[in-house]
Design a protein around this nucleic acid. Structure first.
Lengths: 124, 124
DNA sequence: CTATCACCTGCAGTCGACTCCAAGTCAATT
DNA sequence: AATTGACTTGGAGTCGACTGCAGGTGATAG
């Protein structure tokens, strides 16, 4: 797959894909004879994973560390698991903060609804 | 309340509180005779609201717009409600993305657990 | 054979959200 | 009277994460 195909498929710009590769978040992608990137299935799975993690706000730095460990092989399993666990815990934490914010927003919106209905009533 | 008291209370730096005021997210705070900020109860409630919204990732820009409308008075209720509703919807969306990411992370972590247990077994 | 188009590189610029600093003021302590 | 410490301002710097060039290459279409 070319970079633009991957970009379209995963809704990431080609610039961002190149950027990810440059900073070592994605491994160097195989090139064809004229130097053009040719993404493998495995590359695509990594892109998809990275996109998913980034969409949840996981930092590039943490993902890069994880990817580096993956490349280093089996003896880094514990370390990798620790990174994932830390990130998972952060997500759980942020989910609960967001849930709290959501509740407050919903209450405020309800309040506006009531005010606006009342406004209509005294007008009509 | 002084800026440092508010900072301590809400776990925001004084720099950030001044920054918020400078960009118009917080209204200008009353000063004492020597020009030092004296936060009212209402100021603190606003700080607390802003902190809560920011912790859920709501953009400063949206919050500033909301605060500006609040200052403009009652005839902006509809507009304010619209902003809150938009932000609420974004949070709902991001909650579901994060939940998806969380599921994937949990599955991966489970996988690591099993691998690591198996490793122990063949070693022992 | 030249023009178009998608790709390439290196690097600078942008954006959101702070964060830090220098230099100054003021009230309270030593 | 001098020092300390918390505050003030304006403005510059940082950080994470892209994003946007300029200038070049290489395959394909007209």
């Amino acid at each position: 797959m070319t970079i633009s195909e991957v970009a379209r498929e995963y809704d990431i710009t080609a610039d961002t894909l190149r950027y990810y590769e440059r900073i070592g978040l994605l491994s160097p992608v195989r090139r064809n004879s004229s130097g053009i990137r040719d993404y493998s299935e495995a590359d695509c799975r990594t892109v998809s994973f990275v996109k998913c993690m980034r969409s949840a706000g996981i930092q590039i730095d943490a993902l890069t560390q994880y990817m580096n460990l993956l490349r280093e092989g089996d003896e880094t399993r514990q370390a990798r698991k620790r990174i994932l666990t830390e990130q998972r815990d952060m997500i759980v934490q942020r989910l609960s903060e967001m849930q709290k914010t959501l509740d407050i927003l919903n209450r405020k919106i309800d309040g506006y609804d009531k005010m606006l209905v009342y406004e209509q009533e005294i007008k009509g």
